[in-house]
Simulated scan of single mutants.
Amino acid sequence: MNNAQSGILESTPPVARYLIFSLTDHGDARRNLRALRDMADGRQTVVGPGQSLVRALGATVPGLRTFPSYAGAGCDGPSTPFALWCWLRGDDRGELPHRARRMTCALTPAFRMEYVIVAFTYLERVVI
């Protein structure tokens, strides 16, 4: 995977899945991330490491910080810091669960999937 992930700036895909993982085993993290590297192309699969993962690996990413939480009258925007975030983009709703399963298996045992968010475009708007 290149440093630049073109999928971030491309138009919204018809269907998507967001996979959110916590780190459970630091010892296997590098091996499991190498398997993920072979699956993530930066376009159809976009990957975002969290600050906790970067620190656990003893690495640094310039500018990386935990997203702040916000709250206002009747509205909460919580910070959801997890170790790893993956955005699976696609055109075929049936294909995404298979990709998600392969990614989850590749990341086990070092990571545990905490959330899956299914999204799709309806009338040119993203629905989550």
Rank of each mutant, 00 (worst) to 15 (best):
H26N: 13
P109S: 09
S11F: 05
F120W: 10
S79K: 05
G77E: 06
D28A: 15
G63P: 04
R102S: 14
M1H: 07
S11I: 02
V126F: 03
T121H: 00
W87M: 12
N32F: 01
T60V: 06
T45R: 04
V47R: 02
V126C: 01
Q5E: 10
A71W: 05
G90H: 06
V118F: 00
G74A: 11
A40H: 01
D76E: 14
L64R: 00
A100D: 02
G74D: 10
R17A: 04
Y70M: 14
P68E: 07
I20M: 08
W87P: 00
F111V: 02
G94A: 15
Q44W: 04
A71T: 14
L96W: 04
G48F: 07
S11T: 03
M103V: 14
A106E: 00
S11C: 01
R102C: 13
L64N: 01
R37V: 03
I20L: 14
F82H: 15
L19V: 13
D41H: 03
G90P: 09
L107H: 01
T108C: 08
A4M: 02
L107R: 01
L88H: 12
L107Q: 01
A100R: 04
A119C: 06
L88I: 15
A56K: 04
V15K: 06
G77V: 13
M39G: 08
A100V: 05
D76S: 15
I128S: 06
Y18E: 12
T104H: 06
A119Q: 10
R125C: 06
F21E: 04
L123M: 10
T45W: 03
T121Q: 13
T108M: 04
D92Q: 13
N32E: 15
A71H: 12
L36E: 09
E124F: 02
G48L: 12
F82M: 03
L64C: 08
L23H: 09
F21A: 07
V127G: 00
A59L: 15
C86Q: 02
P68H: 10
M113T: 06
S6Y: 02
A110T: 02
Y18W: 12
E95L: 13
F82W: 03
A35E: 12
E124Q: 07
A73P: 13
P14T: 09
S11L: 11
G77A: 09
L57Q: 06
T121C: 07
V118Q: 11
V118K: 04
E10I: 00
I117F: 05
G90T: 11
P62A: 15
S79D: 04
T104F: 01
I117V: 15
V118D: 15
V126M: 09
W85G: 04
D41S: 05
V54D: 04
F120H: 09
P109E: 14
D25C: 11
Q44P: 00
T24L: 09
C75Y: 08
I128G: 00
V46A: 03
F111Y: 12
N32C: 15
S6D: 06
N32H: 07
A73N: 08
Y115H: 11
T60I: 03
G63N: 11
N3T: 10
V127A: 05
L107G: 01
